[in-house]
């Protein structure tokens, strides 16, 4: 790689009305923001050049996040544009609901964000629920469902058909925490191209095991960060 081609990773949040924008539109939005902010991004060759940019992991419609990542190739030196410059330029033109939280230059050989993702953490609240269960009771049920279980087998529907999956080794953290008027879930789940577990799927399985139907509740889900596996420790993609 020539010296002036640099790899940069950005961490961003997606909140408010931006949660109604799907992944393809987030990509489209970033392409425009990068031009608006006059970021020295690298383009591909050909009649229809595109920006060299890749996102770590699509976020489902309706979810908010404080830990999304995107990688991009820049044509500049770090002296010309510091990571902080890039971040400030983008934040100046971003609409309400998306902010750049962090930016870092990476060694060019660093695997891209998408390939690096191994886990994702989530905070999940109920928006409404039509069943009653105390904090103590749900914690007891969770102990039986998760901590004491040797396996949690589910049938996962994929594009190619159905596949049996054991959730147990893919749930890295399953905590229920009390708060005023109830409790919320604090999760860390396997993520990425290998074994991607969505929080809805995991929590629906838990509620089903408790005999509660999916119609009895709605969730508000926040993805809090994405992690790579470094020597069997999960560390955030910038960090």
């Amino acid at each position: 790689m020539p010296d002036n081609i640099k790899k940069m990773r950005l961490k961003f949040s997606k909140t408010g009305n931006m949660r109604f924008i799907g992944h393809l539109d987030v990509m489209r939005y970033f392409q425009k923001v990068i031009r608006k902010a006059e970021i020295p991004i690298r383009y591909s060759e050909g009649f229809h050049p595109h920006q060299i940019m890749s996102f770590a992991s699509p976020l489902g419609m309706g979810l908010i996040s404080s830990g999304e990542y995107v990688d991009m190739d820049l044509v500049c030196t770090e002296e010309e544009y510091s990571a902080a410059d890039i971040m400030n330029r983008m934040n100046k033109v971003l609409s309400e609901g998306i902010s750049i939280l962090d930016a870092a230059y990476l060694p060019y050989k660093e695997p891209n964000a998408m390939a690096s993702v191994a886990a994702a953490s989530y905070i999940v609240h109920y928006t409404d629920k039509s069943f009653d269960m105390s904090f103590e009771e749900i914690c007891r049920k969770k102990t039986v469902f998760f901590d004491e279980a040797s396996s949690i087998n589910i049938i996962k529907k994929t594009k190619k058909g159905e596949r049996k999956v054991d959730l147990k080794p893919l749930i890295y953290r399953f905590d229920i925490k009390p708060e005023a008027n109830g409790y919320f879930f604090d999760l860390m789940l396997s993520s990425g191209s290998q074994d991607n577990i969505k929080p809805e799927l995991m929590l629906d399985t838990f509620h089903e095991a408790m005999g509660i139907s999916t119609e009895a509740y709605h969730f508000f889900i926040e993805r809090t960060d994405l992690y790579k596996n470094v020597d069997n420790t999960f560390v955030p993609l910038i960090g």
Binding site: G16, N17, M18, F20, I21, D25, K32, K36, M61, G62, S95, E96, G97, T127, H218, F220
Partner: peptide
């Protein structure tokens, strides 16, 4: 600016392309 959506989240998430109804576009006045 904090503007409450006319439609609830449940409705927005139940229709095709909810972004049609929430505004917040680039260069909105």
């Amino acid at each position: 600016m904090d503007i409450k959506n006319a439609l609830s989240d449940d409705i927005l998430l139940s229709v095709e392309k909810p972004a049609r109804y929430v505004g917040n576009e680039v260069n909105i006045i």
